[in-house]
Each structure stands twice: as C-alpha cells, then as structure tokens.
Write a protein that binds this DNA or RNA. Structure first.
Lengths: 207, 207
DNA sequence: ATTTAGTTTAACCATTTGGTTAACAAAAGT
DNA sequence: ACTTTTGTTAACCAAATGGTTAAACTAAAT
C-alpha cells in the first residue's frame, strides 16, 4: 500500500498545481503529459479535468503564476524612486535571489513567450499594467547630462543590465557542462554576481 | 540551345531539411509535427520516413547542424591567438552577425539542451572537441597581473561577455514588446551592439 | 437515517500522431 | 529490352493522448 507523506496536508488543488508546475517547467508545455501531472500529483487523470477543464487552462494558470514571479522584477526598476547606482544594485540583487530559488524560470517563460508572443504577453499585462521604461531611460539621460556617467545609449545600458543578470540562468546547463562546474559552484558564482554585476556596470559608466 | 543548370530546384532531402529546420526551430521538438514538416516541404509524410527513419533521427540532424552554428563561436574565443581586447571585439562581432541571421538559434539550442543536457551536450562534443576555456582564463589572469586590466574573476568576466552578446536574442520577443520596438529597430540595436558591447566591457576593466 | 453536494475513480471514447505497407513511377544498370 | 534500384504516394495501423462519463465514495446538512 502506498503511503502518502507530507502531501496529505496539501489540498488536491494545491497538489495539482505543484505537480503541473514541476512538469510544465521541466518539460515545456508541448512535451508535458496530463498523465505525468496526474502521476506526479498522485491522483487520477480525470481529477485534473475536474479541477482544471483542460490542458490549456491548467497551463495558463501555471504560466501566469510563474510569469508574475519573473516580470515584476523588471518593472521594479522602472517604478522605483532611487539614485541610479542604488537602483542597479537593488535590481540585480533581488533578481538573482529570485532566480537562485527558481533557476528554471527565465528559460521557461522566455521560451513559451517565444512560441506565441501575442498570446502570452497580452495575458500577462492585460491592460494598463505594462512596464513603462520611460522614466528609467530618462533618469539615465539626465545622469549623462549631469556628467555623473559617461555617454551611453540608455536602451543599450538597460539591455546590458538585464542580460548580465538573467542570462546565466538561461544557460546554466551549458555553463556547468562546458566549464565543468558542479551545481554548487555555479550557485556560488551566482551569489557573487549580486555584487559583481553592479560593480562591473558602474565601473564601466561612472565618470 | 541554352543549357539549364542541373537541380535548379532543391533536392528532396534539402527541402526536407529546410522544412524541418523551420518547424523545429519555431515550435520546438515536442510541438513539431511530422505532418507540418511534410506540408512545409511539399511532400508526402511517408517520404520523411524514407529519408530520415524517424522523428528523433531527423531532429538530431537538425539540432546538430544548428548547434554547430552556435557553439564554434564560443570555442573561437578560447582558441584564438590575439590580444585580449581584440579577442573580445572579434567574438562579439562574429557572434552578433551570426545571430542576426538566425535570431531563433540561441533559444532553440539552449532550450533543447535544457530538456536533456547529457544527451545533447555529449552529442555535440563527442570526445575531445569540447571547448577548453583554460587558455582564455589564464590570459585574463595574466593581464590582471600585468596590470592592464583591473582585478576581476576571469570566470565572471567570461560570463559577462557571453551574456551581453547572446541574451538579447533569447529575449527578443520580450524586448520588442515591452520596449514597443519594431523588428527593424531591434535589428539596428543589435548591429550597434557590435561596438557597444566591447566598449562597455573594456571601459569597465581597462586600467 | 437520509439526502445532498462535492470529490474521486475506472473505464471508455475520439482524435492526433508517429510510423508502416503495398503499390507504383522513374532512373539506373545490365 | 528488361531487371533492379531508388523515389514517391495513398491508405492504413497501433499507440499515445486529451478529454468524457457514469458510477462510487465521503462528509457534511437536513
């Protein structure tokens, strides 16, 4: 007889959501099987359809939840009211912390967005909640005019910041394999990046 | 009488490869349908199996070909015999050029690697052809000791270089949507990055 | 104790999908 | 000429997969 352990405490719906999250994020939407999710949740396949009508509905639920962990961090830097360098430090640190917990996140989100950009991007920012980079870009412009940082295209600097922060998590398997790096070493490197990246950026633009 | 060139049209095998490449890279392996590929190639589905036994064989053929466009560029920087800054400029420029032609490439390759790292990474570098970053990392060490660049962990600098170069192509749909950027504008930005990225890196580390 | 509403399951169904077969056409040998 | 090999197709098949159904179980409400 199969003993249920910790999961006994979780509601069926939560068990499904946890299972779906695991299967979808590791295999991707197309390769994920409803049966896999049912097995992972330790329930019957029909029960999936009882709680979530169909695969799309279940996927959208998971995707939206995951995307909300991914994107608000990008927004943050646009909304925040703070000096430039402080903003950069905060953005990188918070992002790296989140991704260290969920390293699968960026590739999952970016990949599904790539497969159907309109569908997902509109789903994430239904109406007026879309990120507005203008303020941040203006802040960069203003710092350049003040002469506190060297001349650089604000859009390029923004891209650099995001690239430096997110990419290593997208390419984790490649890095760890090519650089013969155990997972623990990779995680240490990511922790270091919380100071490394801001240092690198600021050293490049500070006058 | 004017002689016609032989094979003005593509051979069936080439039509299949082109079609498979398109379908696999846009939809991913799991979501790609053999029928889609047959349609795209304008042939019967059975003919696919005549040329390539099954889906896995066909996919591996495509994946290997694409991965070979993606990875040698990473190797290049490790093999090349040149001054550091020149190396950086060359790496970025060549990589950006390649990705501008095949923007789908990084996400496709990284995504499939993520789904089964051992299988693909071993398939790409069968035995002794694996990239060896040691020389490049040593060069960085040596430049730091000489005092031509500031103190920085070589591994972090390597990651920064790769991240800055590749990430924008992985996140293209996100960038163009969030920053309300037409495709042409994005492409222009990428062209600019060929000088922007080396400048950014060198400004950060040069002493 | 009986009803009722929600939960769960085994069995089933329809469609999709990768893959095969057999027939046939076009080249290539002989 | 005719035989063999290679290229191509329509029809078919079995397995996989998403989804449904009806019945059974459970726990609370009446």
């Amino acid at each position: 007889m199969v003993k249920k352990k910790k999961q006994q405490t979780l509601s069926t719906e939560d068990k499904i959501l946890a299972a779906a999250r695991k299967v979808f994020t590791t295999k991707g939407k197309a390769a994920a099987r409803m049966q896999d999710i049912a097995d992972e949740a330790g329930i019957n396949k029909a029960l999936l359809h009882y709680y979530f009508r169909d695969k799309n509905k279940l996927f959208d639920t998971i995707f939206l939840a995951e995307a909300k962990k991914f994107f608000p961090r990008i927004n943050m830097i646009f909304e925040l009211e703070a000096p430039l360098f402080e903003k950069i430090e905060k953005f990188v640190a918070e992002y790296v912390d989140e991704m260290r917990i969920n390293p699968y996140l960026p590739l999952f989100v970016l990949n599904e967005i790539n497969h159907d950009p309109k569908r997902f991007l509109q789903k994430i920012w239904g109406k007026g909640t879309m990120p507005k980079p203008e303020k941040f870009l203006q802040q960069l412009d203003s710092e350049i005019k003040k002469g506190t940082i060297r001349k650089i295209q604000p859009m390029q600097l923004l891209m650099n910041m995001i690239s430096l922060t997110i990419f290593p998590f997208v390419a984790e398997p490649m890095f760890t394999y090519v650089l013969r790096m155990p997972d623990k070493k990779f995680d240490e490197l990511m922790e270091q990046r919380k100071v490394e990246i801001p240092q690198f950026i600021i050293a490049s633009i500070k006058k």
